[in-house]
Design a binder for these strands. Structure first.
Lengths: 145, 145
DNA sequence: TGATAATATTTAACATGTTAAGCATATATG
DNA sequence: CATATATGCTTAACATGTTAAATATTATCA
């Protein structure tokens, strides 16, 4: 218990998660570059498409971004007409962010390619393993510690 | 096939991997802050401890960092006496990076805490699931595409 | 050998990650 | 109602992520 030596990095969870993610992102990045958005901007647009208008705090939670990063990302997206940012009607601290038709068409336009890439990965990895992996990741992410 | 709609972000692999990683890092970050190193600096020192002196390209591969990031990180580590960087004996393009005793003691000093945190996560998640997850991640990372 | 391609690393530029602090508005409480 | 506290978001500062280009050195090969 509490060994003095660290376990091999090949079995270290943070690096393993990073390596796996890099593999996947390596397949997706060309599509994002073609669409002219970063990985993070894509996540924000996607969340807004999926769940509709919401405030920055909820976007940050759903897209796995920290608020300081999100502030900059939303500024960029708003300046480029992909989202709108309006004051909350009753709570003066909040904003409500909504995707624009331009933002929505960016997502729609690239959804087929995104799905094709995902299908290729799933085919190579195995649909069953993919499900198992997603289940394990979800369980780990919601672990009580 | 090639649906027009994107699958739910809750089953999107990149975000799922990120969420799981955030959960783990949330447990580890206090230790790193206490040790006075960033996550990436820690990875570099760890790789050098595990496999000995090597060139930046190998460090980048093993620690899952891009070379431009690694250049800055090595500069910092060298300035703070945690690694040394010397020219390769025969290949003038290369450098050889080695951890110093100061760097090694930083790792040694924090290894027990790191291992304890890992054990806690493993206990909560289940050792068998942890193994399954690591196997799946490894397989995904080495997928032929 | 001499031009050419490949390799190892760095630099540059811009976007994001991370932590702490700041600011405005809302809520709670005496 | 006044003040303290909490909440939502932004700003600041520094480290890293990402892509492209630059630099130096080595390998290739006509």
């Amino acid at each position: 218990m509490t060994e003095k030596k660290l376990r091999a990095t090949s079995r270290a969870l943070p690096i393993s998660l990073l390596r796996a993610r890099e593999k996947v992102m390596g397949q997706i990045r060309p599509m994002l570059a073609d669409a002219g958005v970063t990985e993070q901007q894509w996540r924000v647009l996607r969340v807004l498409t999926e769940d509709g208008a919401m405030d920055p705090t909820d976007i940050a939670d759903k897209s796995c971004l920290l608020l300081p990063s999100l502030t900059r990302i939303l500024k960029y997206l708003e300046e480029n007409g992909l989202v709108t940012r309006t004051k909350h009607e009753t709570d003066g601290r909040r904003f409500v962010v909504e995707i624009t038709s331009k933002g929505r068409s960016l997502i729609d336009h690239n959804a087929p390619t995104s799905n094709r890439i995902y299908s290729e990965i799933e085919a190579a990895f195995g649909a069953k393993k993919m499900d198992e992996l997603l289940d394990l990741l979800d369980e780990l992410a919601h672990l009580e510690l």
